[in-house]
Amino acid sequence: MSGADWLSYSLQDFVMFGPQVFLRLFVRINQDLWPWQVLAVVAAIGIPVLLFRQGRNARCLAVGLMAVAWAVSGYGFLVGYFGPINWPAAWFGWAFVAQGVLLAAAMLFGGVHGGALSFGRFVALWLIVACGLPWLVLAESGQWQALALFGIAPGTTAAAGALIVAVITGPWRWLYLPLLVLWSLFSAAMFWVLQTSWLLVTPVATLLLVGAGFWLSPRPARSLD
């Protein structure tokens, strides 16, 4: 294909589904999972609680829960529901699973530090993500079953996952970042084409929260080992 041919492609040409079908994915997964959403809510509350308890085990457990959230939203939502109508979503789904494995490895092999975090700031941001972002899909679709819960919906999960940058150290952190950035760019481009403007908030928030994760992380970082 010539350069001129490539120039004739627009973002639109790469989005192979419409907004109605995309928004219904949230309704469908919530209907199919009911009532197991309770577990996602418990995890969303449990992570900040565990992060601020004394001791290595609690913080590792929090990171472990985050790892599970990455894997579940990646495999469940992206591979299972979104992948069939949008192939790149399935690839991202597997990348979410790998991100979960990476986080679990960081937890097991000393990639989680024990330095003190600012409790107030972290919890405030976590609450905004876990309690605020889920409503955006609802605002866009007008259907209450479309709530984009942490641990189920990939956008909310990635945004919360960005804050975890605050507790992981050195090289683990750099391995953890690319997916956050790529996913945010991918989903922002997709929402732009679909003209679902409310949803654009989530990838923008994710990128800002990566910055917040760095800002919240204590310096110099101290390993738990």
Partner: peptide, 10 residues
């Protein structure tokens, strides 16, 4: 059928 019929298992 591009886009319009790509509705997955819904």
């Amino acid at each position: 059928t591009w886009i319009t019929f790509n509705v997955g298992g819904d």
